[in-house]
């Protein structure tokens, strides 16, 4: 059997771990998008040399411990309140880079008001929005973003709009608001997608210097545990079902 130690050799290393990532092992399920997006944020912070001037706001959701992985100062917000917390930080320290990192339950259900109004005020912050169509942390319940017909533990026979309402496209909603300057929908299921998502996150952080309002990067994501699929199946399922409803690309870039 091959020992991992035999594989991890300098000559085999293609990627370096970002210096802005801590050494704490991530608690995410294998195949989860959260870890990939954390890595991209860390790389952007490192490349922009803003580790000392960036403040993150973590959500309640699977990424509640984001602060254990990205080596910057953080606030851990109550469920859904991250955009209000970020508003307080940014208004009082306008020269810092401030971002929220939120799941779909956090951003599009319990925190809808905070999200819409932070966007509408044009706060100069970045919002990273992990849309996995489900409540991952609490064990796979229906989210506001759950697709019609999609199974979750609180809609075991599939989401039925007559009972459960329709999946909500938050990025489309906030793109309508003059307070947002950049709204884009990305994914991290392939190497190409990861590169594009990183570019988008970089732009969303750079935009804070221009003081033109909210930049929101939605990442259509997998939750293989919540979806009860293998990581590979989850990626395929996402491409087949999520992307048609949540098409990738820029919704707004001003």
């Amino acid at each position: 059997m091959i020992d991992v130690k035999d594989i991890i050799k300098p000559e085999n290393l293609v990627f370096k771990k970002s210096k802005v990532l801590t050494d704490t092992p991530m608690h995410y399920c294998p195949g989860c998008s959260h870890g990939v997006v954390h890595n991209l944020i860390a790389e952007v912070i490192e490349e922009m040399e803003i580790q000392e001037t960036t403040i993150g706001v973590a959500p309640v959701g699977c990424s509640v411990f984001a602060y254990n992985y990205i080596d910057i100062d953080w606030h851990e917000a109550a469920h859904g309140r991250a955009p209000a917390v970020a508003t307080g930080i940014k208004r009082l320290m306008p020269d810092k880079f401030v971002f929220t990192y939120q799941g779909d339950g956090d951003l599009a259900a319990i925190g809808t008001a905070e999200t819409i109004h932070a966007c509408n005020r044009g706060e100069n912050i970045t919002i990273v929005f992990i849309n996995n169509g489900i409540y991952g942390m609490t064990g796979g319940q229906m989210a506001p973003t759950t697709l019609e017909g999609m199974v979750a533990s609180t809609c075991p026979s599939g989401r039925d709009h007559a009972r459960d309402g329709y999946p909500i496209k938050m990025s489309d909603l906030v793109a309508q608001l003059p307070g947002t300057c950049y709204v884009t929908r990305q994914a991290v299921h392939t190497a190409g997608a990861v590169r594009k998502a990183k570019k988008a996150i970089r732009k969303a952080f750079e935009n804070q210097k221009r003081k033109k309002g909210v930049s929101l990067v939605e990442v259509v994501s997998t939750c293989n545990s919540g979806w009860k699929m293998s990581p590979v199946d989850a990626n395929n399922w996402m491409a087949e079902n999520m992307f048609p409803f949540y098409p990738l690309g820029d919704l707004k870039d001003e």
Binding site: I55, V57, H75, A77, A78, R81, A84, V85, A86, T87, G88, I89, K90, R91, L92, M93, A113, E114, H117
Partner: peptide, 19 residues
Amino acid sequence: LQAESEVASINMLYGGAGS
């Protein structure tokens, strides 16, 4: 700043206080 609700204003305080 006039917030959109008291829920928002107390969380703005949380961000400011943490700063």
